[in-house]
Amino acid sequence: MLLAMPQPASSLPEMYWQRSFPGRPDQAGQVRSFLRVLLPAHPGLDDVLLAVAELVVNAIKHSRSGEPGGIFRVAIVLDSDGIAVSVTDQGGPGRPTGRAPGGLAESGRGLALVTALSARWSWSGTDQSRTVTVCFSAGGQ
């Protein structure tokens, strides 16, 4: 007689990585390298790299992570449904929005780009710490 193996109460991610980075502009390239090593075969890797680079720039530019001594954290979850990448900063004023500015504004379109590249994105947090998560399906976007 074969006994059935108990199933876990919740499904766990297949893979999870996390790393902290100094809050400096040159770290956007380090984050992209980190992702390239971890996700080399993902069909939507270019979209993931571009979207996450935008989140990193936002963390450095719009939060205390970009101040001297600041840091931000990148966490990646890879499972059969796809990829979720979270960037957690040290908080600051304002709230992330996906609305692009009108006219000829030179900035403010980053999260609109993230919206276009990803399956979805969301954020949570306070003025002390914010996490923005972007999700991509297993087949890309």
Rank of each mutant, 00 (worst) to 15 (best):
E67F: 08
R32N: 07
V77A: 05
S86T: 14
S65Y: 04
E67W: 05
P101K: 08
G29K: 13
G70R: 04
L35H: 05
G44C: 06
S20C: 08
G82Y: 08
G69P: 05
S33E: 11
L104W: 11
R99Q: 13
G94Q: 09
L104R: 13
H62Y: 15
R99P: 00
G44H: 03
P40N: 03
L35W: 04
E54C: 00
K61G: 03
V48T: 05
L39H: 06
Q30F: 03
R95V: 15
K61W: 01
T88A: 12
V74C: 14
F21Y: 12
I71C: 09
F21D: 00
V37I: 10
D46Y: 03
L38W: 02
A105V: 11
G66L: 10
R36V: 06
D26L: 13
G103K: 08
S86K: 09
P25S: 05
R32M: 13
A51F: 01
I76C: 15
G91C: 11
A59R: 01
P22S: 12
L49D: 00
P25H: 04
P22K: 04
V85G: 08
V48Q: 04
G92Y: 02
V85T: 10
A28H: 09
R32P: 00
S33F: 00
A51P: 05
G69V: 07
P22M: 03
R32V: 12
R64F: 01
A105M: 11
G102N: 06
D81S: 15
V37L: 10
G102I: 07
I71H: 14
H62T: 02
R24S: 11
L78Y: 10
V37D: 06
V37E: 12
Q18A: 14
R36W: 00
P101T: 05
E67D: 13
Y16H: 14
G103F: 12
V77M: 10
R32T: 14
G91Y: 12
A105I: 04
Q90D: 08
V52L: 01
G103W: 12
S86P: 07
D46H: 08
V87H: 01
V77W: 06
